[in-house]
Design a protein around this nucleic acid. Structure first.
Lengths: 197, 197
DNA sequence: ATTGGCATGTAACCAGTTACATGATTCC
DNA sequence: GGAATCATGTAACTGGTTACATGCCAAT
C-alpha cells in the first residue's frame, strides 16, 4: 500500500497519464521509489476505483489518446493521512554491493567493471540532478527559493538523491583504487582513505 | 533470484542457521539487502534443494536444535558466476522520502517528527558501523588491513553503509532547519546550504 | 523500410510481507 | 511470573517482475 502514496506524491506535480507518470518516476521519483510501468498502470486503476484519482480521456490527433489522472479531494486527504502515519524503514536492494561483499570469492575483474559502470551511471545522474536543480531554482539562490516556493518537497528529495550519487562517486573511486592495489598486476599508488571524517 | 546470492555472500562469513543468518542480515547485510526471516527460511530450503548449500543438524542440550547451512562447491561456483554476470540497478524504496516529497500537501509537523526519528536511527547505525569497523580492523590501520586481510568485501560494503548514514545525518539536519524556517511559528536562523560542493 | 517514441494493457509468475503457531530457556 | 531470546516453520495474501501484445506516428 505504499506505491499508492508514491503515485499520489508524484501527481502533486500535476496530472499525468500512465506513460507520463512512468517517465516522471524514471527521472525524479527514482531516487526514493522505483516502479515499472506495469505496476503504475495497475495501481492507477485501483486508485481511480477507490476514488483517490479522477481520470479523463484526452483526445489527440497525431498521437494515441491518453487517460490523464488527477488527485481528488479524497486523494489529498489520503496523502495527508499518510504523511501523519508511521514511517516504515527503507528497503535497499543493491546487487552491486552483494557482488562487492562476495568479491573475495568472486571474479575481481568483473566486479571492478561493475563498479566502473556504476560510477558512470552516478556521474550521469549527478549531471541530471544538477540540471533539475537549476530548473527548480530558476535563477534564484537556494535561500530565496526555499522561502518563496510553493513546494519545497521535490527540492528536498532531489537533494537527497544528489548527495546519494555524490557518495556513490567518492566511494566507487576509492573502491576501484583498493581493488587495483589488490590485483596481481599490481602497481603501487597512495593510500585511499575510505573512512572519511 | 537475487536473494540467493545475498545469502551465499553472507555465508562467506561462515556457516549459519536460519536464525543466525537473519541476525547477520539485520546488522551487516541490511546496508545493501533486506530480507525477513521467513524469506530466508524459504530460500535456504531451496538453496539446499538445489545443492548450493549443505545442511547439518547441530544438537544442543539447553537450546532447540538448529540446522547449520554451509556453501558447497557448487554454491561457490554459482556465487562466482553471479559476480561475473550483469548487475541490475539498485531498487530504493524509502517511505520517508515519499513523505518529504508530499510535505507541502501533508502534515508538516508529522514529517518533521519522522525526519527526527530517522536521524536518531542514522546516529545509531553510524555508531554500530563504527564498532563493526573497529572489530574488522582489529587494531590495524585501514591501509594495513586492506593489504593483509583475507576478505575485504565486508569492509567495502560496510564503508558504503557508513557513508550512507553519514549523508542521512547531514541531509536530515539541513531538512529539519528548512522545515523549521517554513513553520508558522517562525524563528530566524542562518541559511542551511543543502547543496554542498 | 525500419527504428524509436507514444500509449496502453493482459497474463503468468515470482518475490516479499503479515499473521499466526510452537516450545524451550534464560534473564530480570 | 513475565519478557526476551533461541529456533523453526505454515498459510494466506499482497506486491513486483517478465514476457507478450497492439497500433499509430515521426524521423532517418
Amino acid at each position: 500500500m505504499a506505491l499508492r502514496h508514491a503515485i499520489l506524491a508524484a501527481l502533486l506535480e500535476g496530472e499525468a497519464s500512465g506513460y507520463e507518470l512512468s517517465k516522471r518516476f524514471d527521472v525524479s521519483v527514482a531516487n526514493f521509489w522505483s516502479a515499472t510501468p506495469q505496476q503504475l498502470y495497475r495501481e492507477l486503476e485501483r486508485l481511480q476505483r477507490d476514488g483517490l484519482l479522477a481520470a479523463h480521456v484526452v483526445l489527440q490527433q497525431r498521437r494515441p489518446n491518453k487517460r490523464m489522472f488527477a488527485i481528488t479531494d479524497s486523494g489529498h486527504r489520503e496523502l495527508r493521512a499518510f504523511t501523519a502515519g508511521p514511517t516504515r524503514a527503507s528497503a535497499i536492494r543493491d546487487e552491486l554491493l552483494v557482488k562487492l561483499q562476495a568479491v573475495d570469492a568472486g571474479d575481481s575483474d568483473a566486479v571492478t567493471a561493475a563498479v566502473t559502470e556504476r560510477l558512470e551511471q552516478a556521474r550521469g545522474k549527478l549531471a541530471l540532478y544538477d540540471r533539475l536543480r537549476e530548473r527548480l531554482l530558476a535563477g534564484q539562490t537556494e535561500e530565496q527559493f526555499l522561502s518563496s516556493a510553493d513546494r519545497i518537497g521535490p527540492y528536498l528529495t532531489l537533494m537527497r538523491g544528489r548527495s546519494f550519487e555524490r557518495e556513490n562517486l567518492t566511494w566507487g573511486q576509492a573502491v576501484l583504487k583498493i581493488l587495483a592495489e589488490r590485483d596481481p598486476t599490481h602497481v603501487s599508488s597512495p593510500p585511499s582513505e575510505l573512512a572519511g571524517a
